[in-house]
């Protein structure tokens, strides 16, 4: 299992967790399409924590047939989860959008790439995301 601590608003570090996860999967010899999907999921999970939360962790559990990506953060939580799932919906402030983040594609990208997605959130406490990405042909 790989685990990374992610701090809120630490934009310089965005991509570190997902990049390491991606390299690890490549080194393990996972199928290229799986690697790509996991990398997208991990990147979106990581970015969400940086944009919205105070701090959190990103984890990846690797097995031959599937990869589970988890994000767990201490943060404001998501008041309207249904809206958050919609493509283009974003609560990111303007300065974050100016950096090219917060386009409201996070959850839709995750849904596109993951085979299974669970999000649980508690306003004022934090959010937990669990994504399962299956190897193709399994």
């Amino acid at each position: 299992m790989l685990e990374f601590e992610v701090r809120g608003l630490d934009f310089a570090a965005v991509g570190e967790a997902s990049g390491t996860i991606k390299r690890t999967l490549q080194q393990v010899g996972m199928d290229a399409s799986l690697v790509r999907r996991v990398a997208v999921c991990a990147f979106e999970v990581e970015t969400n924590i940086v944009i919205h939360a105070h701090r959190g962790v990103v984890r990846a559990r690797i097995s031959p047939r599937q990869v589970v990506v988890e994000g767990e953060d201490e943060g404001p939580g998501i008041p309207d989860l249904e809206a958050a799932m919609r493509e283009g919906f974003s609560t990111a402030p303007a300065y974050i959008r100016e950096m090219g983040f917060g386009a409201g594609m996070g959850f839709s990208n995750m849904r596109r790439c993951a085979d299974h997605m669970e999000v649980s959130t508690q306003v004022g406490k934090g959010t937990r995301v669990r994504l399962v990405i299956e190897a193709s042909g399994s």
Binding site: Q26, G29, I62
Partner: peptide, 16 residues
């Protein structure tokens, strides 16, 4: 794919 730890994924995961 020369950076691979092992040709077999299960073994590669164990090595990782």
């Amino acid at each position: 794919p020369v950076l691979r730890l092992d040709e077999d994924v299960t073994r590669a995961i164990r090595k990782m």
